[in-house]
Design a protein around this nucleic acid. Sequence first.
RNA 1: GGGCCGUUAGCUCAGCUGGCAGAGCACCGGACUUUUAAUCCGGGUGUCCAGGGUUCGAGCCCCUGACGGCCCA
Length: 555
Amino acid sequence: MTQRDEYFQVRAEKVERLREQGIDPFPARYRRTHTIAQALELLARWTERGRPARERSVSVTGRVTGVRNMGRVAFLDLRDGTGAMQAQLRRDLTGADFELLKSLDLGDFLGVRGRLIHTRTGEPTVEARSAAMLGKALRPPPEKWHGLQDVQQRLRQREADLIANDDVRERFVLRSKLVAAIRRFMDGRGYLEVETPILLNVAAGANARPFVTQHNALSRTLYLRIATELHLKRCIIGGLDRVYEIGRIFRNEGLDATHNPEFTSMESYEAYADYNDIMSLVETMVEGLASELLGTTTLEYGGATIDVKAPWRRLDLRTAILEHAGIDIDAHRDAASLAGRMREIGVVVTQEDSWGRLVDKLLGDKVEPHLVQPTFLVDYPVEMTPLAKRHPSKGGYVERFEGFVAGMEVCNAFTELNDPIEQRRRFEEQEALRVEHAEEDFDRLDEDFLTAVEYGMPPTGGLGVGIDRLAMLFSGQSTVREVVLFPHLSLSQDEMFRAVDAAIQEVLSRLPTLSQDAFYELVRNDLSAEVAARITKGELIRRAMQAFEDQSQAI
RNA sequence: GGGCCGUUAGCUCAGCUGGCAGAGCACCGGACUUUUAAUCCGGGUGUCCAGGGUUCGAGCCCCUGACGGCCCA
């Protein structure tokens, strides 16, 4: 028996023992009178002002995170969502409930009822008169002093991470407060929170590849949204003058430090506003969030001290590229010419890159890393931005900005294009570019949206904020998966081997007398694309061979 | 894509020049009425990431691969 099984079995036996004693190890309810924070506060108040004449006993609940058993008295550390405190179990005070200790393990949920006292050492404590098991744990918690360090396990079993690591717990509390504060900020400015569809006939509104799914009843292919932009603008057209949506966006692309295939955005649209108004909204909001949540507008990130206090620097995009890369993009308005200049300064480009993509690479390589202090990069080439309005005086540019903090893009905003004729032309340009540059992502033409704009759309300022990026910034994390509770991960080695072994067993049970070569082929076909791509032929053959031998021996 | 580092008990980690696989926590058995990572006595529970090679002998050396971390593109 492995040690893992032993832990489980010992605890499972305790569950049985409790049942034999007529105790439900998983009772439906328990009446608690105080959260741990409330109990601590109550005791502090009593200590200050004296105990009431008729003192109530309290009951608190929580997970057992520590046990110090001294024979006829035991001290338990209890933790609930509000805090941690000590409970004392004395044999002479708890009677039969004292026996519960024999079936108690770290990680169990317990309720205790009794007086609030300070022990000899001054520790706030519930002096239990009764105790009840509220939920037995069958697995041991991670190591109590060092916590859980293994990154894979932390991310795959976030609950264990949260149990073991206080900083992780606090980080996700902060994220939640961040979202709540953004809502308050937008609500306070008269914005209406709306909900728009996630399943769409056309995934438009951004340059990204969508996830594809199937609606059975309609026999229709649907796409998960890659932005909330187009529907929110339809709200503006409909007369909801200020709207926003906080929600999940899905983009079918790779995973890395700053990209999870599903992420949270806050998009907002405001009629009669332009991108200058939106800049001021963003800097005001982020400064306010920092003051409210962190108590300061300066934050430490990646070794830099960043001040998010408004106003943020405005930096013209063309000037920025000129300064940081020495290239005037207006002097190289075609892809071949720009690519040539970029090669000269050592930026990796390909024959197929579109002009817009080249500019994007220049930005990413040469400009963005320098945008450590909060900066709005202003006025983007029209090729990169089909939904923004042309700049009235800068030919070839649109009124668009992106906000950067710590070299990270945190928002994207435009003065929205509200001319339906030009909007159609811009979408058509995107479709043409898609034909020319098959590997790149372009926006898609959405007829329903164009119809909406044709009804007449007011001048509008629009904004998209990456909530995950903000959460990273505010919590000092360098990867998005540390601010997403359950991030997507590729398969672990164990999971891969398990998938292979399962496929082998499946084929073996179906066709036990196959030749070996045919057998490998069938197993390989059974594997998911992800596993098939990564398992080596040698590894597959070894595992199949082993299973083959095991089976022959069994027969 | 490239470089460096790592993968050993449930968890956190040692393991020297190749020679019986280790510690702390956790766990199991026992003692203990005021502990705070309780303490004391006894017990090591393992696919050393996988496979192959060298060797009398491999956790350690070599090769291939998987997974992960960091750095660079």
